[in-house]
Design a protein around this nucleic acid. Structure first.
Lengths: 196, 196
DNA sequence: TATTTCAATATGTTATATCCTTAATACTAA
DNA sequence: TTAGTATTAAGGATATAACATATTGAAATA
């Protein structure tokens, strides 16, 4: 999700086992779990690698994200505490600061916290797991998209500010709309990428 | 999904390995995949079993199903072929016949085919996988719900007929509405169950 | 020089033995 | 009789080796 493993990269069991000072089995289990989540894939020859992105896959993931994250936003709107909204607001500033310093690890972490503070307030554990799976699938591509967009000096926080404002107003429909706006901006960033 | 493995049932590796004439590893892999899908769960002591249902979990799964299956229905409506609609219509009769004969294996199979003929027409492979995962989670409970509802002589096909009519009219909103109607009927059936 | 073939290597899978945690059982003491 | 403890059994996790398949690279041939 941090974008440190690049798309198309192979992940052989033995080197990873050595790196973590363990045997093949725990590594194999871990990778198989990520395959089940769609974060990794088995190639035809059973080697495990980071999936390549395609326009179709990206659009489809976007459609599903709109449905599920919008749903979580609707449920969260009446339930989220004011302190959590304040936390989200603070995270917006943290994100801006991280972008200033080109600190993408921090940006990605804060961005995740921002969204999942909201989604967690919906108190829907299964929904949360599914959204997490979607983020895991987009993760490898998100980082490079952010880096590109940052050099282009577009502000990814306009959507975030709109979300916070809608939460303070307890306007569920507007929360959903601003989430979709934010996701749309994200997919446009991603769409400028050239998939390997 | 066929409902033959009952909720709460433990699934130890060794007996299954003996049953399938193999070693622990392939069985362990298979069960771990089902755990990743949410179809099975690891208890606190790491034993694998069929998850128990709760009202909260059932309602949440229903909410997610409405969002995702509704989305698939929307995409499918303009795309599905007339022959597929005809196939769905035929499956309605097959389902009715299966219920008459109390042949629940056949009913469940036809019911699955009916819905997934529709969802498949959306041509969204990731969405389809996620919907499949939801069905896998409800599977163990669906069978007993159908059996109860059948003795109560309520007709689960009214929603199905409405879906087919909406498809013939190529009315996406009505497809979505009738899908939600069908899912609502299903959850009401399920809600009458007493969870172990 | 390009192509094919064959051996060597890499890599995921399966089988088996062992380890470790947890659950069940028996036994002792109050 | 009951509570606590020790012992045993059960069961998943891990390590290791054997296995099967796929890829790679080099040598031989066209």
């Amino acid at each position: 999700m941090g974008g440190h493993v690049v798309p198309g990269q192979k992940l052989p069991l033995r080197p990873l086992a050595e790196e973590f000072n363990t045997s093949l089995m725990p590594v194999r289990d871990a990778l198989n779990r990520l395959v089940a989540d769609g974060a990794l894939e088995l190639s035809s020859s059973r080697t495990i690698r980071v999936p390549l992105m395609s326009d179709e896959r990206l659009v489809e993931l976007h459609e599903i994200r709109c449905a599920l994250e919008g749903l979580a936003g609707m449920f969260a709107t009446p339930a989220i505490s004011v302190s959590s909204i304040d936390r989200m607001q603070a995270l917006i500033d943290d994100m801006a600061a991280a972008l200033e310093q080109y600190d993408y690890d921090n940006y990605i972490g804060n961005h995740y916290s921002f969204h999942f503070t909201l989604y967690g307030a919906a108190v829907r554990p299964n929904l949360l797991t599914m959204i997490d799976g979607l983020w895991l699938q987009i993760g490898p591509y998100f980082r490079q998209a952010v880096e590109r967009a940052n050099t282009a000096k577009s502000d990814p926080n306009v959507g975030h500010r709109r979300i916070v404002a809608a939460l303070r107003a307890r306007d569920a429909d507007e929360v959903q709309a601003s989430l979709e706006f934010d996701l749309m901006a994200a997919i446009e960033m991603l769409n400028e990428g050239v998939w390997p």
